[in-house]
Each structure stands twice: as structure tokens, then as C-alpha cells.
């Protein structure tokens, strides 16, 4: 039962990285891909109806960790206090910015919110990568699960590499998404940008996986390579799906290397939080299993329907001139 919930939490993180990964990417690329306000609106409208639903995956991942592994939730969140604070501020900023940028017709107003989206998306993507790398690679925690050392103990070079890994993945994923969801000049530009930057942008991810799991980094490399090949061939849909496989492989490799720990202690392996040790009681896990068994398929159906409703590509001609 504990192992099942370990897998559920990995699945929730996967959903989050796959979905919010591209909306982070769109925000991170906003000033590079969107040359004028109309193009930036095209980009934001590709994620407009869905980014909020994507973000709920994070809340559920957090809530499920709290419910299923309170020890993990308490230790990780309190140890990574400052990075998480920054992450939250970034999420607050970009969330509000999406809603507010179009509410006042002024170039200065939009510019401010565009900057917030851009910075917020970068910081949030780096932050989530840092937290995931931290839980996989461990923290200096004592027998009680409390962090030993300074507030910056969570910021190691490996954790920073994790941040860069997820940020780089989000860049490529976001560019492919823009190519998939738009038409005209911006689609072509997004495609070219994804292809040229991918070798550099995906480097930290490959490095992280090599460091964590050695040869198991290869499937990710393979899927990402295939994704770029399909993109090069002009098949954005296939490319986007292959990026999904790449991130699936990433999550599988990272969480498999973590198991049976949930948060290793870098001080003494005896202090490491394990799947068995940090879990809630069997009753709580059973309750949660029922809720997840009915809830998750429903979420997938209606979120899938949302993407179907908004399946049409968007181009500059759809944006009303005056707003």
C-alpha cells in the first residue's frame, strides 16, 4: 500500500511536470518567441484555458504527500523553506499576471505583467526542479527529520543542476507546445527555436539523470531525440507526445532511484525517511486509494475534454486588434 502511494505521488508529479512544464515554457519564452503584443497574446492564449488546471496537479501532489507521507511532506517542505518561498512568490506572480495583463489597455501595464510572467515562470521551473532533485538526492536531516545546517542546506550543486534540468526541459517542451498550438510565422519560429536550443537546454537534464542513474538516462535521451526528429519532420503532435514519454521516463528513473527512500539523509543513512517509515496508517491510505481511484480518471476525462474543446490552433488573426 505504501509503495502504491509512492507510485501515485510519482504519477502526480509526472502530471504536473508534463502539463505545467509546457505552460512554464510558454512563459519562459514569452519575450523570445513573442515579438509584439499580438504574438505574446497568441502565446498566452494557447495556455489560457488550461494553466490553472495544470497547476492543481501541484496542489494535489502536495496534498497527497501530506496525507500519505506526512513525514516526507514535513521534512522536505520545512528544509527547503527559502527555495519554496521563492517558488510560491513566483507562482503567485505569474498566476495573477495571466489574469490581469489584459484587463487594462496600456502598453506599460502589459509590459509589467509580461515581465512577471517571464520571471515567475523561470523561477518556478527552477524551483520545482530544485525541490525534486533535493528529495531524490537527499538532505542533511537528523533522526527527527529536521534539517541540520543553514537555511541554504538544500541548495547544493546537484539541486541547482536539478533546477536547470527542469527549466531546460520546460523550455523545449514549451517551444514544441507553441509550435503545436499556433499557426503562421510564430509556429515556424517556435519550431526552429526548439530544434536549435534543445541540445543545450536538455543538457542539464541528461547530466542529472546520468549522475543519478547512469545508463538509465538513455531512454530519456532516446525519447527526446525522437521528439526532436518528429519536430524536424514537421509533426508537432508526435513530437509533443514523445516529450511526454521523455518526461515520463525522467520521473520513473528519478523516483525508482529514490525508492525505497522518500527523502535520504546525507548525514546518516539510518536517518533517511523511507516509504514504510514516513507513511500514514493503512486505513488512511485505503481511504485515499478509493478517492484517487475515482477522482483521477474523472480529472483525466474532463481535463482531456478541455484540451479537445480548445484544440484549434491560434494565430495572430484571431486576436482582436483593439483591446
Amino acid at each position: 500500500m505504501e509503495t502504491l502511494w509512492f507510485c501515485v505521488i510519482a504519477l502526480l508529479w509526472l502530471g504536473y511536470l508534463f502539463l505545467e512544464g509546457f505552460d512554464f515554457g510558454v512563459g519562459m519564452l514569452l519575450p523570445f518567441l513573442g515579438r509584439d503584443n499580438t504574438e505574446r497574446r497568441v502565446m498566452i492564449n494557447t495556455i489560457g484555458p488550461v494553466w490553472d488546471g495544470n497547476e492543481v496537479w501541484l496542489l494535489v501532489a502536495g496534498g497527497a504527500t501530506f496525507a500519505a507521507f506526512p513525514g516526507w511532506y514535513a521534512a522536505l517542505f520545512s528544509a527547503a523553506y527559502l527555495p519554496l518561498t521563492l517558488f510560491l512568490l513566483a507562482l503567485i506572480g505569474r498566476g495573477v499576471a495571466f489574469e490581469y495583463r489584459g484587463k487594462v489597455d496600456s502598453d506599460r501595464w502589459r509590459k509589467v505583467w509580461d515581465t512577471v510572467i517571464f520571471v515567475g515562470s523561470w523561477v518556478a521551473a527552477l524551483g520545482v526542479g530544485l525541490v525534486i532533485a533535493t528529495t531524490v538526492l537527499g538532505l542533511p536531516i537528523d533522526a527527527n527529520g529536521d534539517r541540520v545546517g543553514s537555511p541554504f542546506a538544500a541548495i547544493t550543486w546537484q539541486a541547482v543542476l536539478g533546477g536547470l534540468a527542469i527549466a531546460g526541459y520546460a523550455l523545449v517542451h514549451g517551444a514544441i507546445f507553441v509550435a503545436l498550438k499556433t499557426e503562421g510565422e510564430i509556429r515556424e519560429r517556435a519550431r526552429r527555436m526548439a530544434l536549435t536550443m534543445a541540445p543545450v537546454a536538455l543538457l542539464p537534464l541528461v547530466a542529472l539523470l546520468l549522475y543519478v542513474a547512469g545508463v538509465w538516462a538513455l531512454p530519456v535521451l532516446l525519447f527526446a531525440g525522437l521528439a526532436l526528429w518528429r519536430l524536424w519532420a514537421g509533426r508537432e503532435g508526435q513530437s509533443f507526445a514523445l516529450m511526454g514519454l521523455a518526461v515520463t521516463a525522467t520521473v520513473v528513473v528519478l523516483f525508482a532511484s529514490l525508492y525505497p527512500n522518500v527523502l535520504p539523509s546525507t548525514l546518516d543513512p539510518a536517518y533517511s525517511l523511507t516509504v514504510a517509515g514516513a507513511a500514514s496508517s493503512p486505513y488512511t491510505l485505503t481511504v485515499m486509494t478509493w478517492v484517487a481511484a475515482f477522482g483521477t480518471p474523472a480529472v483525466l476525462v474532463y481535463q482531456g475534454w478541455t484540451y479537445w474543446v480548445f484544440r484549434k490552433r491560434i494565430g495572430v488573426q484571431h486576436i482582436p486588434a483593439a483591446h
Partner: peptide, 23 residues
């Protein structure tokens, strides 16, 4: 989790469930 981790450990078996259900 960030500021009240001792609370989270103490009540996690009960308190986390409604939060996760809410999500």
C-alpha cells in the same frame, strides 16, 4: 509543511486526507 512541520507530522494521518480530497 514549511512553517508547521511538527504539526504536520503529528496530525498528518488525519489532517492531510481532507486537504488531498479537496484538491
Amino acid at each position: 509543511g514549511m512553517a508547521w512541520s511538527a504539526y504536520s507530522r503529528f496530525v498528518g494521518d488525519v489532517f492531510g486526507a481532507p486537504l488531498a480530497m479537496e484538491g
